[in-house]
Design a protein around this nucleic acid. Structure first.
Length: 517
RNA sequence: GGUCCGUUCGUCUAUCGGUUAGGACACUAGAUUUUCAUUCUAGGAAGAGGGGUUCGACUCCCCUACGGACUGCCA
């Protein structure tokens, strides 16, 4: 039997990076087992619904390349609809089944009354609406049949709660954690249907997983405490035999280890925690994404995959295809993993470095147009080749290497003062002339134009009685303004004869001025 | 407070009773590079504590400590 997994986010805002990892693991298991990956949108809380959140989730999965096989936004399959708000009636009928079987009951307590109860139980060990407290509350278990009918006829708002059975031990066999058990005496009577007629997560999730024939529930550890309730609900419906296997993932923790990573941490620690940028209503609620930071989705996926899982080998770089092949639930760790931004950056650098120049050029092209640079893809490909070992983020290409597209904007005056000698000006001018004699475009020979020039210039340095350190750094600054960057002759070759000529001439005048004060 | 889960270098992790406890990130030093980056070499760096079980425990069991999640008519 082929497996079916699902990712079931709630559209309450941008999808957190931890959610992306949960989606990833679901995707990987489905791919590995040749199963189906379902995207279900759990929008049962109308008060927290955020417009655009669903689109954000879909766009994120597409960007990451982990697309569901069926579900919202990905071709509705045979179990449509996949949005819980569109399945409202369904949940009601299932809740009624539990009422009829005596596994659930009506409760009429107002929020204020619940508050009073919690206050009263403050010092008790069990503070919940449960088997020990429900008799003291206003529900169809404590009230007479007549009172209940009266309340309902009056239109009194009510919820439906799960009736937790007395004194049972519920054992869950978690694929990651092994046996986890709960005693029903500790479990609370969870709300199944809210007063607004919508189901809660606990009901909707189980009904849908059952109806959609989900075989494996891979979700965050925050769900572990309610897994006992979920098992009880399956049992109440008589669905024990088709209950999915559970796998509760370890949490992604803050870099300082204090609690799970939250959306605020991005701003606090200075890194993205969302895959894509999100425009919230306020500045506080807006976030920069990994994508906009200049991350390659492959790097994000690789990084996320290894945050809580490992292949058992010393391999660190995995393509999505390799992950699909090698992934297994058994190798997922139990303990939470701290978010390590340095490692994320390293992965990105690795991916950029190993991307073919022409691919980089394709990505750089629209950005260069945006910046008003008028260059060919061929030029961009060569440029990418020179820069790719020197950038961590994609957007650094045009920032750090801007001087390949326009004039130098700032010179390293300190280095100019240290190195430029007025009396050498004439010699440098002859160097300019030397460059003029080269064929910059000859790429047929065994030796590249850059190498060719390098040889000649070094010879020129010798015959002029100069040292490398007296010439090369200045050449670099003249062309780029800074001491950092690709090999000088690579820059010379890419910039081209005219540009080199122009820049050197301009720079010498500037150098004179700087040194003369 | 209660329930549940967790605990190997600073961080991510390997080890499925016998290893000089391995790798990666980060860091430090060196080599290469005219610079920066890359690459290479080297270095420091770990089994929370205490009891068991065992010929032998990082590995199995118990206790303690610490950390986390949950404790909503949120998911």
């Amino acid at each position: 039997m082929s497996i079916r997994v699902r990712f079931a986010p709630s559209p309450t805002g941008a999808l957190h990076i931890g959610g992306v990892r949960t989606a990833l693991y679901n995707y990987l298991l489905a791919q590995k087992m040749g199963g189906t990956f379902v995207l279900r949108v759990e929008d049962t809380d109308q008060t927290r619904f955020v417009p655009g959140a669903e689109e954000y989730i879909i766009e994120t999965l597409k960007w990451c390349g982990i697309e569901p096989t069926e579900g919202v936004g990905f071709g509705e399959g045979q179990f449509a609809p996949y949005r819980q708000s569109e399945r409202k009636e369904l949940y009601h009928s299932y809740a009624m089944k539990l009422i009829e079987s005596g596994d659930a009951y009506y409760a009429f307590d107002t929020p204020a009354e619940l508050e009073v109860m919690r206050e009263r139980l403050k010092n008790e060990s069990n503070q919940a609406y449960s088997i020990v407290t429900r008799e003291t509350m206003k529900n169809s278990l404590s009230l007479s049949q007549q009172q209940v009918t009266e309340l309902m006829d009056n239109g009194t708002p009510y919820v439906i709660r799960l009736k937790i059975p007395a004194n049972q031990t519920i054992m869950i066999n978690d694929l990651i954690r092994g046996e986890v058990s709960f005693n029903t005496i500790e479990l609370d009577d969870k709300v199944l249907m809210k007063a607004d007629g919508m189901p809660t997560y606990h009901l909707a999730n189980i009904v849908d997983d059952y109806l959609m024939k989900i075989t494996h529930v891979i979700r965050g550890e925050e769900w572990l405490p309610s897994a006992g309730h979920h098992a009880l609900i399956y049992k109440a419906f008589g669905w024990e035999t088709s209950m999915p296997r559970f796998a509760h993932l370890p949490l992604i923790l803050k870099p300082d280890g204090k609690g799970k990573l939250s959306k605020r941490d991005g701003k606090k620690f200075g890194f993205p925690v969302f895959p894509l940028s999100w425009k919230g209503e306020t500045e506080e609620e807006s976030f920069v994404g990994f994508r906009e930071m200049g991350f390659d989705p492959r790097a994000v996926i690789n990084f996320l995959a290894l945050l809580g899982w490992n292949s058992g080998t010393e391999q660190e770089i995995f393509s999505l295809e390799e992950l699909c092949e090698k992934f297994s639930l058994e190798k997922i760790n139990k303990g939470g993993a701290r978010f390590d931004y340095d490692k994320a950056k390293w992965f990105n650098q690795q991916y950029i470095m190993h991307t073919p120049n022409t691919d980089l050029a394709d990505q750089l092209y629209p950005l260069s147009i945006e910046q008003g640079f008028n260059v060919s893809k061929e030029y961009l490909a060569q440029f990418a080749g020179l820069m790719k070992e020197r950038v961590t983020f994609f957007n650094e290409f045009l920032e750090k290497g801007y001087y390949f597209f326009k004039n130098v904007a700032a010179f390293d005056d300190d280095n100019i003062k240290k190195r430029w000698k007025l009396e050498n000006r004439a010699k440098f001018e002859s160097l300019t002339n030397l460059f003029n004699t080269f064929d910059f475009t000859d790429s047929d020979g065994e030796i590249s134009p850059a190498q060719n020039m390098e040889h000649a210039v070094k010879e020129w340095i010798n015959t002029n009685g100069l040292k490398m350190g007296e010439v090369l750094p200045l050449l670099r600054i003249a062309l780029a303004g800074t001491m950092q960057g690709p090999a000088v002759f690579d820059m010379v070759a890419l910039l081209g004869k005219n540009e080199v000529q122009k820049r050197l001439t301009l720079a010498y005048d500037y150098f004179d001025k700087v040194v003369s004060g």
